[in-house]
């Protein structure tokens, strides 16, 4: 056993670090993530039935999920659910909402401007930034493409 080189240490660490129990996590994230998406779809169909425009319906669905996730975060139960759900609550828009609200509540003690105001973006900021950046790159390519009539 070599405990004096990084390779030896890494090997020891790898051998002794337990892996996540993927099976159970996988099922839970599938069920909870699926339930959020399925519930969203049911809401979308309902919205379409009551005459909401086709384009607006998914936006309302997202807003509903954002609101529910924010309220659950406020009540302090979102993290308990997420502990089981893992990607099931992270991947839907609920994860985005939780990141915003949890960070805001957490930074409260540091004041409204530099606490809440600045830190509210610390997890959702990258999502917005890189989403917009990717969108602008796509837009530039699309604009060039249509300008040349491709």
């Amino acid at each position: 056993m070599d405990i004096y080189t990084n390779e030896g240490k890494k090997k020891l660490i790898k051998e002794n670090t337990p892996r996540s129990t993927l099976g159970k996590n996988l099922v839970k994230s599938f069920l909870i993530g699926g339930a959020i998406s399925g519930g969203g779809e049911a809401l979308r169909i309902l919205l379409l039935k009551i005459g909401v425009a086709e384009k607006q319906a998914p936006v309302y669905v997202s807003l509903t999920i954002v609101s529910i996730a924010a309220v659950l975060t406020l009540l302090g139960v979102f993290d308990s659910i997420a502990r089981h759900a893992g990607a099931g609550t992270l991947v839907p828009i609920s994860g985005f909402s939780n990141a915003v609200t949890s960070q805001a509540i957490d930074a409260k003690s540091e004041g409204l401007v530099l606490g809440v105001g600045a830190k509210i973006f610390s997890i959702c900021g990258p999502v917005i930034l890189f989403g917009l950046a990717a969108g602008v790159i796509y837009g530039a390519i699309y604009y060039i493409a249509i300008s040349f009539g491709w």
Binding site: S20, T21, F78, D79, I81, A82, T89, Q103, I105
Partner: peptide, 16 residues
């Protein structure tokens, strides 16, 4: 709060 994530943030902790 200092080393990881906000207290209400929903993330799974790895087994280690």
């Amino acid at each position: 709060r200092q080393f990881r994530a906000p207290t209400e943030y929903g993330a799974q902790r790895p087994p280690a």
